[in-house]
Write a protein that binds this DNA or RNA. Structure first.
Lengths: 194, 194
DNA sequence: CGATTTTTTGAATCATATCAACGTACGTGG
DNA sequence: CCACGTACGTTGATATGATTCAAAAAATCG
C-alpha cells in the first residue's frame, strides 16, 4: 500500500526518494480502512487526519441551513482528502467526510506532517505543489459554478473526470454539480439526445 | 503610508515589530498609485505585485466565454490584493485587477516577500495567518454561492460588508453577488419594502 | 427474493436572466 | 460653469433554467 503513496510523491515532485526519506514518510502514516457509509470526519469535530486513498471512494460535503447536502469534492484512489482549514487550524469543521465505497487509506496527523516537512525536503516540495494545485482546483470550481449552466457543468465534468460518471451514484454527481437529482437526470437525457 | 501597513501587521499578528524588522518590511515595498480604471493586472500576464491598499478601492474579476465579468473580490483600505496563483507560480493570470477609485498602494514582489519571510519571523507569522484567512474566506464565498438565493446573499453582504453598498457601484455589487444589475435592483427593492 | 434506495418522468412553480425602454446622474470639454 | 454624452439604475414583459412535489420505474443490496 505504501508503494502507491511513494510512487505518487515521486511522480508529483519528479524526484526519487532515498530509502531513508521513504522510511521517514512511511513511518508518518498509518493504515486505516473504512466501510461504505463510515465517516472519516463529522461536522463539528476537528479534522484529525489527512488521508491518502489507496482503494475506494470518499466525499466531503456540508449541510446547509435548509438541510441540503453539498458535495465539495470526491476522492478516489491516489487522491488526498481532509478539511484543510480544520486540520491546520484545529477548528471544528463544517464538513463531513464519509466513504462512498469500502476504502483503504493511509492517514497522518498534522504534527507528523509538519515534522516530515522538516525532515524531508522532497516531502516539503510535495506539499507545496499539492497546496497550489488544491488552491487552483478550488478556483476552477468556483468559476464553473459562476459561469456555467447545469448542462455546461456536466459536459465539463465528462471531460475532466469521466470516471466519476461511471463510478459514483447520480444523486451525488448532482450534488457535486449543484443540481437536484431530477434536474441532472433531465440534463443527462438532453445531452444524450444530441 | 507605511505606518498603516505596520499597524496592520502588528494587529493581525498581535506582536510589536522591532525597528529593525519594521525597516526590513518597509524596504520590501514600494509605493504605487493608480487612477480610477487603471489596471494592476491584465488577464494573460503574470501577476507581479502583491498590493496593500492604503487608499481607494480595487476589484479582481474574470471574464467568461460569454463575455460576462465576474467579480471575485474587492479590496478597500487595509486589504491585500493579487492573484495568488499567478503570483506564486508565475503562470499567466485569468484575472484582471483594476482600480474602482484612485488608489494608493504598497506593492512588493514574490522574491521580496520570500526574502522577508526568511528575515522576519513576525512577517512569516503574518503571511501564514493571511493565507488561512484567505482560504477560509474563499470557502465561505463558495458556500454562499451554492446554498443561498440572491436575496439571502445580499442580506449576508449587508451584515458582513455594509461599506460595500455605500461605496461601490450597484452593477459591481451585482457581479460580486452573481446577479444581473436588473435582478439586484429588484431584490433590493423587495428587501427595502420589508 | 423482497425491501430499500436510486433514478426517471410529469406538472406546477420559482428564481433569475434577457431584452427593451426610460429616467437619472455625473464628469468632462467647450 | 453649463450642456451634452455616456454610463448607471430602474421598471416591465417575456423567456429560461432549475426546483419542488408526487408517483412510477429501475437498480441495488443484504
Amino acid at each position: 500500500m505504501f508503494d502507491i503513496l511513494r510512487q505518487h510523491i515521486e511522480n508529483i515532485t519528479s524526484s526519487t526518494l532515498s530509502e531513508e526519506e521513504a522510511l521517514i514518510i512511511k513511518n508518518a502514516f498509518v493504515q486505516k480502512s473504512l466501510r461504505r457509509r463510515q465517516f472519516l470526519l463529522h461536522e463539528g469535530t476537528i479534522c484529525k487526519y489527512m488521508a491518502f486513498v489507496t482503494r475506494g471512494a470518499l466525499r466531503i460535503y456540508s449541510i446547509d441551513d435548509k438541510g441540503n447536502e453539498h458535495i465539495v469534492r470526491f476522492a478516489l484512489e491516489g487522491w488526498w482528502i481532509c478539511d484543510r482549514e480544520s486540520f491546520s487550524q484545529l477548528t471544528p469543521s463544517q464538513y463531513n467526510i464519509d466513504a462512498i465505497e469500502d476504502c483503504d487509506l493511509l492517514v497522518s496527523t498534522n504534527e507528523q506532517l509538519n515534522q516530515m516537512k522538516q525532515l524531508s525536503p522532497t516531502y516539503m516540495k510535495f506539499t507545496s505543489i499539492l497546496d497550489e494545485r488544491h488552491y487552483a482546483a478550488t478556483h476552477r470550481r468556483i468559476q464553473a459554478y459562476i459561469s456555467y449552466t447545469g448542462e455546461e457543468r456536466l459536459r465539463d465534468l465528462m471531460n475532466t473526470y469521466p470516471q466519476f460518471l461511471l463510478r459514483l451514484p447520480q444523486n451525488m454527481i448532482a450534488s457535486y454539480l449543484g443540481l437536484t437529482p431530477e434536474t441532472l437526470s433531465r440534463v443527462r437525457k438532453q445531452l444524450m439526445e444530441k
